Each structure stands twice: as structure tokens, then as C-alpha cells.
Amino acid sequence: MALENADIDKIAILARLQVTPSETSDYANSISSILSLIDEMQQVSTEGIEPLSNPHDASQRLRKDEVTCDNQREAFIALAPAAQDGLYLVPKVLD
């Protein structure tokens, strides 16, 4: 399927893209080559080939919910420029 420059102009209007006349022929050639590749791929016989697995069919590997590191909250609070009652204090941003 070959696209004409008029087709590219229509697509550009629908997509609200600004395409210069010098770019129109380049886009027409590029999109036409992509469409011809798709047509070529459509003609390949896939008879007897199993479809690839669908990622939605897979189940997640789960692990036990275990603590893997120590609680370092107090160490991090100590590094903060300002903290009160275990919470970080930050400057007011909005009035």
C-alpha cells in the first residue's frame, strides 16, 4: 500500500501536525515502506506454529513477606535538618 502526498497531508491535518511540503514525500516513502513490510509479514504462513505465551496468563512468583533489613528510622531522622515527634519538618511552600 503506497501512500500519496495528499494522504500524508490529510493525516497531518487529522493529527494536528505541521508538516512542510519537503517533509511530505519523505513521510510518504517511510510510511509506505512500513506498510509494505506489514503486508509482507501478513503473508507468512503461521500454520502449525503455537502462539507465544500471553503475559497475562503468567502468575507472579511470590516470596515470603519477611523483614530483610533493620529499622533505621531513628538514624534517618537524626540526619534531617528538622524533625519533631518522628516526622520531618519542611518549610512552608504555599501561603
Rank of each mutant, 00 (worst) to 15 (best):
A58Y: 04
T24I: 12
F76L: 14
Q60W: 13
D7K: 01
I34Q: 09
C69R: 14
L94G: 02
L52C: 10
D7E: 12
V19K: 02
I13D: 13
Q84N: 07
V90A: 11
L3S: 03
Q72S: 08
Q60A: 14
A2K: 15
S22C: 00
I11F: 08
A78T: 09
S22G: 06
H56R: 12
A80N: 01
A28M: 12
Q43C: 00
C69Q: 15
P91H: 06
R16C: 06
L62I: 08
I38S: 06
L94E: 14
L79N: 06
A80W: 02
D70Q: 11
A78W: 04
S30C: 05
L35T: 14
V90R: 11
R73C: 08
E50A: 14
E47K: 05
A83M: 05
A15L: 15
D26Y: 02
S25W: 01
Q43E: 09
A78E: 13
V67Y: 02
A28N: 10
P91G: 05
Y27L: 15
C69E: 11
V93L: 09
N5Q: 10
D57W: 07
T20A: 12
A2S: 13
K64M: 06
H56K: 15
I31G: 04
P55E: 07
G48R: 09
P21T: 03
D95T: 07
F76N: 06
I8W: 04
S45L: 08
P51G: 10
E40R: 11
L89F: 08
Y27I: 13
D9Q: 14
M1W: 03
K10H: 01
L94D: 11
A82I: 02
N5Y: 00
F76A: 07
P21A: 07
A6Q: 13
Q42F: 05
A75M: 07
L3A: 04
E47P: 00
E4K: 15
L94P: 00
E74A: 15
L87K: 14
V44G: 02
A6V: 09
A6F: 00
A82W: 05
L52I: 10
P21R: 05
T68A: 12
L79H: 03
P51H: 03
L3N: 01
A82D: 09
A12P: 06
S22M: 08
